[in-house]
């Protein structure tokens, strides 16, 4: 697979009086993958995300996005077009008076010609299922709808990568599902690379790969199935475990002999059932 982001020996601190909040981070993101970044609050996840589209510049190390170096100012707009970012608070990312204006804003900034803009606008709104809301005022929408409009604004710029920075954490369960569904569609149909910073492990277990951050360091990386075998380590760095794993451990403690394989609830139910039928 092709590398789309290369982070190499990155360290960052907010100022010289402060300690490093990111320490010697090294990883790649592959084109078309869904990568989740998990870690306790203050572990450096969000700061790391801001390094990936040049919003902040590391003091040490480099970040390449689609071949461009983020510290190279000549290409910063190209990088920002390639990497769209959805933030946590749906109320903090609106500029337009209507949904239509808001989605168009990014394209105007990037000098997209008007006829192309009109076409992309309706396409982007259709993709996030907000086409019926083009003339509405963003502040009258629900949190989930607002985040979908934010995603449409990004999609309209035809990025290669979308970063969700706890984009669902302020939403109700319904809104959360809407967003994940929308991004999954984009991931599948458009081959969009997704980087999701999240506390929601039920979401994270569906990703291709996970990075675990703790105290500014990248302490683990791997496929969810591998990674969630290190339950003790994850607990130690303040992370929760996926429901199926907690359930499996509780059952094992009560004397039910189960393998350590199940990651999804369905797998655990199947295993329980196989075990039970052979008893």
């Amino acid at each position: 697979m092709e590398k789309i982001i290369e982070v190499s020996d990155l360290s960052y601190r907010y100022s010289e009086e402060h300690p490093y909040v990111l320490k010697n981070i090294h990883f790649n993101v592959m084109k078309g993958e869904w990568l989740s970044i998990v870690g306790h609050n203050g572990s450096g996840k969000s700061t790391l995300a801001k390094c990936l589209n040049g919003l902040i510049q590391p003091q040490k190390g480099t970040v390449h996005v689609g071949g461009y170096l983020t510290s190279d100012e000549a290409h910063i707009w190209e990088i920002r077009r390639l990497v769209g970012m959805v933030f946590q608070n749906p109320d903090n990312q609106f500029v337009g008076a209507t949904v239509r204006d808001d989605v168009a804003f990014g394209m105007e900034n990037h000098g997209v010609p008007r006829d192309v803009m009109i076409q992309r606008l309706s396409e982007a709104l259709r993709l996030v299922k907000m086409d019926g809301f083009a003339a509405r005022e963003p502040h009258r929408l629900s949190g989930g709808q607002k985040q979908r409009v934010a995603i449409a604004g990004i999609v309209a710029l035809q990025p290669m990568i979308i970063i969700l920075d706890e984009a669902t954490s302020m939403l109700d369960p319904e809104g959360r599902k809407e967003i994940i569904r929308t991004v999954r569609t984009l991931h599948k149909e458009r081959g969009l690379t997704v980087i999701s910073i999240t506390h929601d492990l039920e979401e994270a277990i569906h990703s291709d790969r996970l990075l675990v951050m703790s105290d500014g360091q990248l302490i683990r990386e791997g496929a969810p199935r591998e990674l969630f075998k290190s339950t003790e380590l994850l607990r130690k760095v303040g992370l929760d475990l996926p429901f199926a794993i907690k359930m499996r451990q509780a059952l094992q403690k009560k004397g039910i002999s189960l393998s350590d394989n199940a990651l999804f609830q369905e797998e655990l139910v199947d295993e329980l059932w196989t075990l039970h039928s052979s008893m």
Binding site: H40, Q88, E166, S169, H199, G238, L239, D240
Partner: peptide
């Protein structure tokens, strides 16, 4: 508990 990590 909005916005807190699992431990918090």
């Amino acid at each position: 508990t909005a916005g807190l990590d699992p431990k918090g």
